[in-house]
Design a protein around this nucleic acid. Sequence first.
DNA 1: ATTCGTAATGTTAACGCTAACATTAATCTG
DNA 2: CAGATTAATGTTAGCGTTAACATTACGAAT
Lengths: 345, 345
Amino acid sequence: MKNKKGNNGNVTLKEVADALGVSTMTVSRAINNKPNVDEKTRERILKTANEMGYTPNLVAKSLVSSKTYSIGVVIPEISHSFFPEVVKGIEEIANKEHYQIFLTNTSEDFEKEKKSIEALRAKRVDGILVSSSQTEEDFSYYEKIIDSGLPLVFFDRCIGNIGASCIGVNDFAASQQITEHLINRGYKKIGYLSGPKKVSIGKERFDGFVAALNKHGLDLNEKWVTENGYNEKDGYHAMSTLLKLPENERPRAIVAVNDPVAIGAMEAIREAGMKVPDDFAIVGFSDDIRAELMPSPLTTVHQPAYEVGKKAASKLIKTIEDNTEPIESVQLITKLIIRKSCGSS
Amino acid sequence: MKNKKGNNGNVTLKEVADALGVSTMTVSRAINNKPNVDEKTRERILKTANEMGYTPNLVAKSLVSSKTYSIGVVIPEISHSFFPEVVKGIEEIANKEHYQIFLTNTSEDFEKEKKSIEALRAKRVDGILVSSSQTEEDFSYYEKIIDSGLPLVFFDRCIGNIGASCIGVNDFAASQQITEHLINRGYKKIGYLSGPKKVSIGKERFDGFVAALNKHGLDLNEKWVTENGYNEKDGYHAMSTLLKLPENERPRAIVAVNDPVAIGAMEAIREAGMKVPDDFAIVGFSDDIRAELMPSPLTTVHQPAYEVGKKAASKLIKTIEDNTEPIESVQLITKLIIRKSCGSS
DNA sequence: ATTCGTAATGTTAACGCTAACATTAATCTG
DNA sequence: CAGATTAATGTTAGCGTTAACATTACGAAT
């Protein structure tokens, strides 16, 4: 409205230069604190640039430097309390290093995930941080991405051994540990509410569960294992299925792939008129913000979400800024949080 | 690792053109589905471009068009359950319209907010979506932004009458309504845990509270009003202060500016060995994911967070794409959620 | 065939900026 | 004070793309 050119009312280097009768290079040097500019000239330029409301055009700068100081973040579901914490950590580090983050939510949809990544790539982000909704079936997509040289760090849900770093937690061990906690409390009939095993965490946690059973000589009862999604409604649905079994064929304890699923399952149990832990002991994973508030506070595995975010961002930025940065697989330490839902006092 | 040029392994239009012996314009036309390209040529080009792994460089495109298809989103605290829902709505609409979102978290820090916006502006985002941590004291910063012509839409926390649209809820009326609910239940000694009044929601909600008192001829007792932040610890701290009053000088009911504050306050009450609603009735605002799970489920005001996000994004995009789009102040409808913390049966 | 009209393709310049080289002005040196 | 340094400034070209104009090709109409 107050501007002639197409640059949306933004002042350009050249305009500042013309206003002062110097060359654009001198202005560029002055503004970017490059050497070989007379101190007086620099001050004059800075003053005028400021008065004119000059803001550097990073788009143009990026075209020259092929560096955007933007990183893409691909998340399966922002409304899970785990992810906002992760994002907070990512944002904090990115910001400190003068990067901005593009956030995309895929709603656990691999197609949407791929589309988002294409969009990010077209925007020439310097790298991407991905928690994938499909890590086990078809690697080819990510193999291509990594091959193309786009710096990529997985977090939480990783694809292993394809040349990208991974920042997660020890899902296998933690899942085994929490299952063993149940076993040690005397439960023998233990069911498992799984998420899709095409996702690393789905597979790892399930494997940890099975390992715990094996270690203690317990059998895996296929009828007690369901595979659904990662949300409350999935847990509700899965538990409803188990509740349809004749009473004497039901498990006595439940391990859920994550807290939302556990919370959904608890709802199904409550609706069926039964109680946690009296009728069913149950444990989750992730220490959702709601976990301790449940009618029967949920025993779960606490994940250091904020730390995962910080570590992932810092690893990505290192990888971007130094291509000799080694590929690394980091497993942050989880903590078993024992509450009442498993029947502990 | 497999590339000669500086373009980070990205294939350029010119490279595709050279590979086929045509001009870059022809390739550009073919790829962008412009008319006047022979069908056979187009197919040949598309095929080769695909084989070579061509991805358009949006940075270059943006420089030409001065349009980035990026929007900035400025949020005070992503870990509040309200905001991830909003972001989800924003992302959904933005994505549908082929925009990407830059997410920044300001941690309620106005200085950080300004820095983020400068960074977004330098990146030449097409517009910004802001929930500001300071909406009442000094408008000059945002006046300058709006004056500069950068499309801006506020959400949740707005600055009114300075030329930007605002998507929020009717904080005043909802706060008045929930306070009246308390009054109607017979409470007369009502305290208020406020957030900073330099933020619109802080002011509006407090004013609604006062209006309800006035309407029913109740006095505002200054000693029962505290002003802190918007988080759990702030609520805890504020309530602790009230609890230091001699027993007969304490309020009997509490209105909290939002749910996190109410939840913090409930914790303080519990630690003091008292009960909700028996010793203190309490109500919140925002319908946090934890509200219904509290030991005494929290009566609160439900805000349509997801809708706020969708509406804000769509308003911003309309404003970006059509500068005759009118400035608008939208108040979405909240819903009073009555649970047990206010003493209702 | 010649001319014309349109479809297909090409060329140039520009978006805002900076690296690299070129020039000019200021400062030394003996 | 001439000649040589060095500091300050300027000029050119190019990052990848597209708008605008220029040229060429080709089938249709005479």
